[in-house]
Simulated scan of single mutants.
Amino acid sequence: MNRQEKAQIIEQLKEKAGRASIAIVTDFKGVTVEDITILRDNLRKNGVDYQVVKNTLARLAFDSTDHSELADKFKETCAVALGYDDPVAAAKTVSEFAKSNDKFSVRFASLEGKYLDTEGVTALSKLPSKEELLGKALGTMNAVPTNFVSLLANVPRGLLNVLTAVKDQKEAA
């Protein structure tokens, strides 16, 4: 690989890292190509890029981004998962793959400039997704007016029941 190719890889990685909300560094030593392909497909479905990088190139690329705290930690075999929209989806996919494959592991990550260790990535993967959180918030917001309308509808209904009972009582007398 010549100097120009290396500079191009650094620029591409720097651009991707600059846009990413989360960068997860993984160790893939001993994982088969077929398994990595499955991981890449799953990550791609969630809008996440997965790239194997040389440590020196990754250090140079990450040094001037929001994820600069990762630059000094690249050692041995590394690959980076870069998530752009939903950081929870990236963490879930990588963590699930790590559970199913003994040779694959999550080393550390950076979430919008904050360092996360392996436990932090695992904790992030257990959070509900963005869509689930939005659905719960919308359900809560919808419940308040619905309950208010039901409450207001019960007032005339109660009055109607009282009037019906008075009418029935007078007819019986």
Rank of each mutant, 00 (worst) to 15 (best):
S100P: 01
A90M: 06
A123H: 02
V106G: 09
K75V: 15
A165N: 13
N2S: 12
T32P: 01
A7L: 12
G30P: 02
D117V: 04
D49R: 05
A23C: 08
D85V: 14
L151R: 08
L39W: 02
D49T: 07
E119W: 00
R59D: 07
Y115H: 02
V88Y: 15
R3Q: 15
L124H: 02
L116D: 00
K45F: 03
L82M: 15
V31R: 04
L133T: 04
Y50A: 03
A20N: 06
E132R: 08
L57E: 09
M141S: 12
R107H: 08
V144H: 02
A58P: 05
A137P: 02
V52W: 06
G83E: 12
D86C: 11
V80H: 07
L39N: 06
P128F: 12
L60C: 07
S129M: 03
E119L: 08
A173D: 15
Y115S: 01
T32E: 08
K14Y: 00
G120Y: 05
T118D: 08
G135I: 02
A7N: 07
A90V: 05
K45I: 10
A58R: 06
G83W: 06
R44P: 04
L134K: 05
D66A: 14
D168P: 09
L133Y: 06
R107Q: 12
D35V: 05
V121Q: 05
G30M: 00
L152V: 12
T26G: 08
K92N: 04
A7D: 07
L13P: 07
D63S: 11
D86Q: 07
T77R: 15
K6M: 11
E112A: 13
R157F: 13
E76K: 11
R107D: 10
Q169M: 15
M141D: 07
V149F: 06
K170A: 13
S68Y: 14
F62M: 02
G139D: 01
S68N: 05
D102G: 03
I38T: 10
E131I: 14
R19I: 08
N46K: 15
L82W: 02
